[in-house]
Design a protein around this nucleic acid. Structure first.
Lengths: 206, 206
DNA sequence: TGACAATGTTACCGATCGGTACGTATACGG
DNA sequence: CCGTATACGTACCGATCGGTAACATTGTCA
């Protein structure tokens, strides 16, 4: 299924960047670092060195530009996720821990701003906003995969464990940008490890 | 230490609400439900049935009004937290679980919008923003208390457990507004229970 | 009743918001 | 050399942003 925006600026490389590509690259950077609502289209086109009509020729609206930014972010996210999965074939526990170890490290880097999609959900509570739709789809799929991995691990309550891992992940995204280096997000992999092992033990209490 | 805003509209009741009080009440509702950046001062004063100079005589700026909203939110938060603590004297495990059980329930209610302070951090990445300062102070104190409670429980890695609980809490705030009813936030207390019990067992692995 | 302080109101400010009508430059095929 | 299509820029739109100057109203206490 094709993108909503008319052009895919990251299609092939080798050419000098077209206006649409420069715009999306700048928008990705500014939207992520400052927030979508905080950045105006004027600032985007000024930074990209283009003009406003160029933006609106490639993207129907600012909201759709934001959605394109998040679709890009979504692809990057799954690339990172699948990389961790591919590093430990057939071992979902190691897959999750590898992913969370890298998340934990990223959260400690200066200027970390959390998950672009999570942030977009906070910025846009309206359920039909283009940016939110992309984010919600990503999170639903993440939840589905985490639950499946928890089941594959043999957890006694796979849905609980999958959801618990998602809570830890989202908590790491937020805590990372809230506390910076040395914050709670540093422990996300270790806490996931504890939670997983506790869930693999027999039924637990009543 | 007194508030930054000139007036405390929730000081005593029994009088017909002054403009400042009406403004703050409306701002609390709109800022929480829609987000701070999404709401303009015109909409606030219009909804409150007052005019703009009334706002700016009681609050130095919109940013400071947002900070006042968050200070109010901070007080409500600690009231809820201390209520759970007081319900289980000397039993930090039960205190945490009581608090998280209520958090989990709140996240399932329609229109749930997460934690106002967490949302403000996402909306304002600048570290010197008045709204962010209030939120960061709240979160630092929460982290401190969670770690202290983890230590009081006798956790083998108290800082790890305290931080893990904070990750679960922040994850519940986000997931609650992201997934709505039936989302992962429902399991926050159960996952905290698993994590706590795993952390109370002996050292774990290397 | 008169003076003062607190509060509310009308009307306005420059800046920025997202978005667009319309003209211009460049590349390419005939 | 011309016609056409594609890509980009100039100049502008009404609406809304956060914030304010100047004036009117009210309550209180002497």
């Amino acid at each position: 299924m094709p993108d909503t925006n008319k052009i895919d600026p990251a299609a092939e490389t080798g050419h000098e960047p077209r206006a649409a590509e420069k715009i999306l690259n700048v928008a990705r950077d500014l939207f992520y670092r400052q927030g979508i609502r905080a950045i105006g289209v004027d600032e985007i086109v000024r930074t990209a060195g283009v003009t406003k009509p160029s933006l609106y020729r490639s993207f129907p609206s600012k909201d759709e530009l934001a959605a394109s930014y998040l679709r890009y972010y979504d692809r990057e996210f799954w690339a990172r996720f699948d990389e961790a999965v591919a590093a430990h074939p057939g071992d979902p526990r190691a897959q999750i821990l590898a992913f969370l170890t890298r998340v934990g490290k990223r959260t400690q880097k200066p200027g970390y701003r959390g998950c672009g999609m999570t942030n977009a959900v906070v910025e846009y509570p309206e359920h039909d906003h283009p940016a939110r739709l992309v984010s919600e789809e990503n999170k639903r799929e993440l939840r589905r995969r985490l639950r499946a991995m928890a089941k594959a691990m043999g957890a006694s309550e796979p849905d609980t464990l999958g959801d618990g891992l998602l809570l830890l992940i989202e908590g790491a995204y937020i805590s990372g940008q809230l506390f910076g280096a040395g914050g709670p997000a540093r422990t996300v992999a270790r806490n996931a490890e504890l939670l997983i092992d506790a869930s693999l033990a027999k039924p637990g209490r009543a």
